[in-house]
Simulated assay, not measured.
Amino acid sequence: MKKIVLVVIGLVVLASCQEKQRYTQQSPEIDTYKKSIEVYKNQDWENFAAPYADTAKICNNVTKEKAITVAQALEKNKEDAAMFSYVVEKEEYEMVVTDKGETWVNFWGLWKGTIKTTNKVYEIPFHNTARFVDGKIVEEYGYWNNSEIVTDMLKQAEKPEPEMEQATE
């Protein structure tokens, strides 16, 4: 009987020492983030805000001090979609729980976009990371290098407009 009690106590102690899983590639948060990427890819703007908390801050290539709201991000994405046709490929997801107990989902992908006015194709690797609280995104950071696009757009803007032929009477 003593041995059984000791084994049970040992198992209870061992079970209580186990940490919560801190890294995974399968979770409800990852599933939510996959849906948000699908919304972006499909330009399903009506469902864009669904995974975000009302007070979420989005920081794409900016610091937290320059974060935008979900509504502002939606408008920015609509503007970009008007200029580009695009796909997202090579998607990878992971979720981590930090030492502070924060839940973050990391995403890596390859954005392939064609600017509609010139038909030039761009391939840009990018990384997003989103912090979740109670199943909602409360902050999101996106990182990518869009300098080639910006440079090309500036060059295009510097070109003189073709002069309109004036009608002769």
Rank of each mutant, 00 (worst) to 15 (best):
Y93F: 11
A67I: 10
T32Q: 03
D134I: 05
Y40M: 03
K116A: 10
T103R: 10
N128I: 03
V8M: 07
K136F: 06
K35M: 00
S16W: 14
C59K: 14
W108A: 00
I58M: 04
K155C: 11
A81S: 12
P28K: 02
T114K: 06
V105T: 07
E163R: 12
T98Q: 12
E38N: 11
K66N: 14
L6T: 06
Y122E: 03
A157W: 09
S36V: 01
Y93A: 00
E75D: 14
Q21F: 09
L11H: 07
N61P: 02
K136N: 10
F48M: 09
E92Y: 09
G135Y: 02
N106T: 03
I58Q: 03
T151W: 13
D54I: 08
W108T: 00
S147R: 08
C17T: 12
K64A: 13
K100D: 13
G109D: 01
K34T: 08
Y23T: 15
K2H: 09
E46A: 12
F132A: 02
G10S: 04
T118D: 11
W144C: 00
H127G: 05
F84N: 05
N106I: 02
W144M: 00
E139S: 04
E169Y: 11
K57V: 03
I4H: 06
V8A: 09
W111Q: 07
V138K: 02
A157E: 07
Y143G: 03
L110M: 13
Q25E: 14
Q166R: 11
V133C: 07
L14G: 15
Y23H: 15
M95W: 01
E89G: 02
I115E: 14
S16N: 15
A67E: 10
G142N: 03
Y33K: 01
T69R: 02
E75P: 14
G109Y: 00
G142P: 04
L74I: 04
V12M: 05
Y33W: 09
V150W: 03
K57S: 08
T129A: 09
E165H: 08
G142Q: 03
L154T: 14
K2I: 12
A53S: 11
S85E: 12
W111C: 06
E29F: 01
K64G: 08
D99Q: 12
E46L: 06
Y23S: 13
Q25A: 15
P51L: 01
L110D: 04
I124Y: 00
L14C: 15
V8F: 05
L110A: 03
V138E: 02
K100G: 08
N61I: 02
G101P: 02
A71G: 05
I137Y: 01
E163F: 07
E91I: 01
A157I: 07
P162W: 06
A157N: 09
N106Q: 07
E163G: 14
V96W: 06
E79V: 15
K66T: 05
T32N: 02
A82E: 14
G109W: 00
E163K: 13
G135I: 04
E165S: 12
Y23N: 14
